[in-house]
Amino acid sequence: MDDVLTIAGKAYSSRLLVGTGKYKDFSETREAVVASGAQIVTVAIRRTNIGQDPKAPSLLDALPPSEFTYLPNTAGCYSADDAVRTLRLARELLDDHRLVKLEVLGDPHTLFPNMPETLKAAEVLVKEGFEVMVYCSDDPIQAKMLEDIGCVAVMPLASLIGSGMGVLNPWNVQLVRDAVKVPVLLDAGVGTASDAAIAMELGCDGVLMNTAIALARDPVRMAGAMKKGVEAGREAYLAGRMPRKFYTASPSSPTTGLIGS
């Protein structure tokens, strides 16, 4: 049986989700996304610049929604109300598209989630028929609250958005994993391929990242590395790691039949 990631009833073969920000241009964005193997890509919703060249290429030309599942986000929103309005606009923009990434930020310094506002927005969005994937703190209690509201995936941060600091609290990530039945996607903080592998080894169902790829020296190559990291971590998780033995070695070679014995 294929090992697929199922979100809101739809199956995905890739467990790596990628953002589309911070790239040099749309051609690099596309190359990196393709190299990552990601099927779900996040996009932001922003005001059109008045006076902007209407013929300028758009992200939707580089990454056609027919090829990728779009995940419009609420990055930059600091209140439930702004996040809900942004996603209503996204739904209209993407022809009644319902799968969304909710994030309500607490402050611009840490970009930590404001959980009370996040919970409030999630309730409204779920009632309106959105399929809500939600950026959240690595807190099993609030992750469960989000699941109970009806969110289709919870996405705790590994470390601060864009920090590249990796998985700082693996124990909490596992607590979140154990607390909910919906997919847990590690979101934010991944720096390199081993971080992605660690997230998957902890039992996460997927990883979402942007900066770790976009700001690598060679983003396209890093996108390929992340794909392998996620796959390796997933395989290791499914294979089941050996138990840790503290303070005692165990030889790998036979202990009998040595010469001179």
Partner: peptide
């Protein structure tokens, strides 16, 4: 009025 488009983002 708010007039919005999709742009690159994470």
């Amino acid at each position: 009025l708010e007039i919005v488009v999709a742009v690159g983002g994470g």
